[in-house]
Amino acid sequence: MDIPRDKLLEIYERMVTIRKFEDRVHDEYAAGRIPGFVHLYAGEEAVAVGVCAHLSDADSITSTHRGHGHCIAKGVDVNEMMAELYGRATGACKGKGGSMHIADIDRGMLGANGIVGGGVPLACGAALTAQVQGTGAVAVSFFGDGGANEGTFHEGLNLAAIWKLPAIFVVENNRYAQSTSVKYASAGGDIAARAQSYGIPGVTVDGLDLFDVYETTGAAIDRARAGEGPTLLECQTYRFYGHYEGDTQGYRSREEIEEYRTKHCAIQRFRDRVTEQGLLGDDELDAIDGQVADAIEASVEFAANSPFPDASEVTTDVYVNYEEAI
């Protein structure tokens, strides 16, 4: 599948934005400027970007506790994202959600999620809207290897399969759920194989290879849009940081992390391939690196200079309409 030049540039820009955003959030968190719980997506960029490169604002995604990458891949503004993590009034959710609930429904980003497996049925619902209204849109649910052990995963796949919903289920198998290895927690081998039980295609994807993710997702989306129903993609990937910021990571070795960072970096792999094939030049890629670095710096400035929400905001946005004083 040939990817147009502009698309390749956009893909690179989004992947680098995720990486630099997460590296910066790691530092900001350590410096005590970001409160709450934070889970970083660095290392897994090719999955979110390779999938979302096919989507427009009309298509929906659901995400996880590790949601920053999905936001950026779906085009959410990084200023609003950083301000949200900072808990500011200018944030994507006015400071009400934070990292674990960051969302932008106008971009079709139906939220990070504090509940593992919580997004799978929501994506079925977005696909149902598309099917009922005949919009041609698709819905993608991202979730982890751990999330695939929740009942919502099984119920969601079955529902999507019997109704032939235009949905794509993307397992981000980064080998661990918190400290627990997928080898311990998941019966039956590949998670992709679970698709067979529901009579839908299940494909194992090299989630560190942008091109593999892009091509496989393209086929799944074509199938979904043609009314043939959902697909399960298992993207094998790796997270560079701990499960959450503060995780001491006694369950995996420094060598393992280093090996992925140096030998299996999805961004480096993408860069090597596009330059070797003469699709993009180092100059233009370097220029993107510079622009992204500036954008991330600007996002921190924007966040730090934004006001905190007023305390009166606590009681707004609970309902659309409610007679009783809260």
């Binding site: 709450g36 500011r88 400071g95 009400k96 959600g97 606590v314």
Partner: peptide, 8 residues
């Protein structure tokens, strides 16, 4: 619901 931002 419980809000995120420290001020809230």
């Amino acid at each position: 619901p419980v809000p995120f931002s420290p001020t809230l």
